[in-house]
Computed example of a mutant assay.
Amino acid sequence: MFDPTDLYRFSGDVPELTDPVLLYHFDGFVDAGGAGRLAIGHLLDELEHRVVATFDVDRLLDYRSRRPIMTFDTDRWVGVESPEIVLRLAHDTAGTPFLLLSGPEPDREWELFTAALDTLVTRLGVSRLVTVHGIPMAAPHTRPLGMTSHASRPELIGGQTSAFGKVQVPGSVAGLIEFRLGAKGHDALGYAVHVPHYLAQAEYPAAAVTALEAVTKGTGLVFPLEGLREAAERTNVEIAEQIAASQELSTAITGLEQQYDAFAAGSERENLMAEPSEMPTGDELAAQFEAFLAERDERRGE
């Protein structure tokens, strides 16, 4: 039997905290629009933080499935970007301490990793674990972003309704953490932001804003969101420009708006479209937006 505490090591003094929230996200699982990645990245950019503990990535990652980037210069190797799974201590804008866990999703030893996190959560007195990510949905970006909340106890999300029934999906470490630690009595919850399916492969800052606003509502933590909101506004302006330049995109978005509005009004699902119409598929819409975003990035690099 392996000892879960062998999977991580503390960096310096272990902080003495009072019921901190632990916010976590792992790269590698579904994250439409980069909602979770952008949210965590924004917090790390905006808030002071320090490393509390690091995990043994040699045991957790399969380097051959996602090889680390190495730098070769002329006749020798001069650097390597080693992956890290790190637990950090940060403070929100009100000075409230909280924990951030991020890095690539482990490839192996999920149960041991979850057990290791359980020991950390217990040692640090964590009151609540929270995760965020994005999922693609057939909804227009011109309407408020929806969200699916889930938790180890229904009381944690206030009885919010869900667009989903009982389904089976590929698992994730984030989901396993909520399931296993919830079974042990820890409060764990998550927010899956509904990202327009045609923007799922692009960076969509509005989704990160929605995710962090949900975290604030669920935990009381307050984050600096001005820069992220400005990025979201710029992105929305660029998307509007692309749509205005394409009749096909304009027609498709109008159709999605009609479906959304009909659904919001309580119409039957078979009547979501006002009139039958030929619309591009999600993949076709995404391809057009990806081409637009690539052109935008090229213009920025000039």
Rank of each mutant, 00 (worst) to 15 (best):
F179K: 15
A245C: 04
E278F: 03
A207R: 05
D283S: 10
N271R: 14
L189H: 09
I243A: 13
F292Q: 12
L221G: 03
G182C: 11
V167Q: 05
P280I: 04
L212Y: 06
L272H: 15
F292Y: 09
L176V: 08
F263K: 06
E213Y: 07
L212M: 06
A294M: 08
G165Q: 04
V193C: 08
G175E: 01
L181E: 07
F179M: 10
V167H: 05
Y191E: 04
G190H: 00
T219N: 02
L212W: 04
S277I: 10
Q168V: 15
F263L: 09
L221Y: 07
T210R: 15
P170A: 10
A274W: 04
E213K: 13
E270R: 14
A294F: 01
T235G: 11
A274V: 10
Q259C: 08
G218M: 05
A287L: 10
Q168D: 15
P196L: 00
A274M: 08
F289A: 05
L212G: 08
L176W: 09
S250T: 13
L199V: 14
R229P: 07
E268R: 14
V193R: 02
T251S: 15
A202R: 13
V215F: 11
P170V: 00
F289S: 06
H186S: 04
A192L: 15
A291K: 15
E268F: 03
G266A: 10
G175W: 12
A287M: 11
V193W: 07
G266D: 02
E284V: 03
A188Q: 03
A207V: 03
E226H: 12
G220L: 01
T235V: 12
A207F: 11
Q288Y: 12
G175A: 02
R180V: 03
K217N: 09
T281G: 14
K166I: 13
I239H: 08
A244S: 15
E233Y: 07
